[in-house]
């Protein structure tokens, strides 16, 4: 299998504070890979290292075999940040149009894709309203739509379903599964257990260290427990890192 993201002995410091300790991970093409860990365990930092927003203090990050950060690879992934990054004066459609134009899409492509992703996150009706009139969940959905706008082969989502109701969350996961079936690689961070269960493989983080990495089923059976919750607690999730 080909590797989409490769992280080799990554350590990262913010000033004197080491927040990532010697992490190795490989994300294969076409899988849904979850990063599960308590608050402050380094999920967002790992994601930023993958997307080239940070250069690791030590170690090498590769996207599709190319060392990051690399401008050429910036086109290859879609990114949804943990906090909504939207222009509040602009409408939903204008936001999408702006992000789409950064990927060099033609006007016609932009329009088609825009309607498609708006439909996907159930925002078609509200797309002409300025974003400052949106609810928290609506903004989250628009951020997700923006990360999918250019049909990337790899999507990196930092806590995508925070503030989204169960029904919509289910439909978003259905969409993610459908994308995966079409060969799209998906990396998602979460601290919601039932979401962690939906990932193909899961990395458990704590205090910037990778505690375990496997399929949800094997993580559970290895510890002879029946729920993800117990796995999470076992690897120290209950205690703040």
């Amino acid at each position: 299998m080909e590797t989409a993201v490769e992280m080799n002995s990554i350590s990262h410091w913010f000033g004197k504070l080491q927040v990532i300790h010697d992490v190795d991970l490989n994300v294969e093409k076409g899988e849904i890979y979850g990063l599960l860990g308590p608050s402050g365990s380094g999920k967002t930092t790992l994601v930023k290292l993958m997307t080239g927003l940070l250069r690791p203090s030590e170690g090498v990050v590769k996207l599709n075999g190319e060392k990051m950060p690399a401008l050429k690879q910036m086109k290859q992934f879609g990114f949804m940040a943990q906090s909504d990054a939207l222009y509040s004066e602009l409408t939903g459609r204008e936001n999408l149009d702006f992000f789409a134009s950064l990927y060099g899409m033609s006007r016609k492509d932009r329009r088609l894709r825009m309607e498609h992703v708006l439909d996907m996150v159930n925002l078609t009706v509200d797309a002409s309203r300025p974003v400052h009139t949106y609810s928290g969940g609506m903004k989250r959905r628009l951020s997700l739509a923006a990360s999918l706008i250019h049909e990337p082969d790899l999507i990196i989502l930092d806590e995508p379903t925070v503030g989204i109701d169960p029904v919509l969350r289910q439909s978003i996961w259905n969409e993610l599964n459908r994308l995966r079936d079409n060969g799209v690689t998906i990396i998602v961070t979460t601290h919601v257990m039932d979401e962690a269960e939906k990932c193909g493989r899961l990395a458990l983080l704590r205090g910037g260290r990778m505690m375990a990495e496997d399929t949800p089923f094997r993580l559970k059976s290895k510890l002879e427990v029946s729920s993800m919750e117990e796995v999470f607690l076992h690897y120290g999730g209950g205690i703040r890192a």
Partner: peptide
């Protein structure tokens, strides 16, 4: 502060 700079820089913009 609203995070769009980071979002912008996570795209192929120079």
């Amino acid at each position: 502060t609203q995070g769009t700079l980071e979002r912008l820089l996570a795209s192929p913009i120079r």
